[in-house]
């Protein structure tokens, strides 16, 4: 993966403003590579980190990170072949059983994930699943509401990275559990929308084991010159394919051993 930055500062700020506008005013834009075909993944992260700088400057608090595009199903659905990461802030968090507005989203989709809360800092490169499990305080079930700001959810890796990995909202819920009490590889998950099963899978769908995704995230952070701080909330990536939601939809994700996470969507 190339972390080389080819865009100049002016272009990065310009693209960041374009993404920020689409995120905050909820409209779709063409993927960034339409205008910058030579854009690299490194350029994507430069835009993402500029976006984070602006959010934090406005008082948003970063609570953690998310790994994205971590399953074969997701990579196939999105036509990419490398995972990505994005930052999470307090403004994206919604409580369990919340009514989540879609009027400030473009075309939201939900997916089921195992989330980790870290008790120790982790630094790459060379982070592995065992190190992740040793540094984990607890795991919990989560639903991520992703929302690509790109028209028709059509994008490539540099564009989606710049769009903060399609991060929009997230809900943590269910039961907190010690990772060492569970087989995190074989947890079954059922996603129901309006009482009907719409997606299913087991946690191995995420890079073979969700902790592998967290290790990968830590190693990408290392390439960006950052570590994963103690206390971080980290989502390991969708186990199921992402399912579109609209106002009136009620969603519940049921996890083996971890309980469930529910929410509904309103205008």
């Amino acid at each position: 993966m190339s972390m080389e930055i080819t865009l100049n500062r002016e272009d990065i700020v310009r693209l960041c403003e374009r993404v920020e506008g689409a995120q905050t005013r909820a409209y779709a834009i063409p993927k960034l590579t339409d205008e910058y075909p030579g854009m690299t993944i490194g350029d994507g992260y430069a835009v993402q980190l500029e976006l984070r700088r602006r959010f934090l400057a406005r008082g948003h608090k970063q609570v953690g990170w998310k790994a994205g595009l971590t399953s074969k199903a997701k990579m196939k659905q999105m036509g990419v072949d490398v995972p990505s990461i994005g930052f999470l802030t307090d403004r994206m968090a919604r409580p369990e059983n919340a009514a989540i507005s879609t009027s400030d989203l473009v075309h939201p989709r939900v997916e089921c994930e195992v989330a980790f809360v870290m008790k120790h800092e982790l630094k790459g490169p060379g982070c592995n699943a065992a190190a992740v499990l040793a540094a984990t305080d607890y795991v919990l079930p989560a639903v991520e509401i992703i929302d690509s700001r790109f028209s028709g959810f059509k994008f490539d890796l540099p564009s989606v990275v710049a769009d903060n990995g399609s991060s929009a909202r997230f809900v943590g819920g269910g039961r907190a559990r010690y990772a060492h009490d569970l087989d995190l590889r074989t947890l079954g998950v059922v996603l129901e929308k309006n009482g009907e099963i719409v997606a299913m899978g087991a946690s191995a769908a995420v890079l073979g084991h969700p902790a592998e995704a967290i290790a990968m995230l830590v190693n990408i952070l290392a390439e960006l010159g950052e570590s994963l701080p103690a206390g971080s909330f980290v989502m390991s990536g969708g186990i199921t394919e992402a399912i579109a939601v609209k106002p009136g939809d009620s969603v519940i994700a049921r996890f083996q051993e971890l309980g469930s996470v529910s929410m509904r969507f309103v205008e």
Partner: peptide, 23 residues
Amino acid sequence: DITLAGMVLEKNGELHSTGVGAA
């Protein structure tokens, strides 16, 4: 929990697909 128990299928050492009892 036979309903929510995950099913992980590997072929020749590689992950092939996953499922769950509820399927």
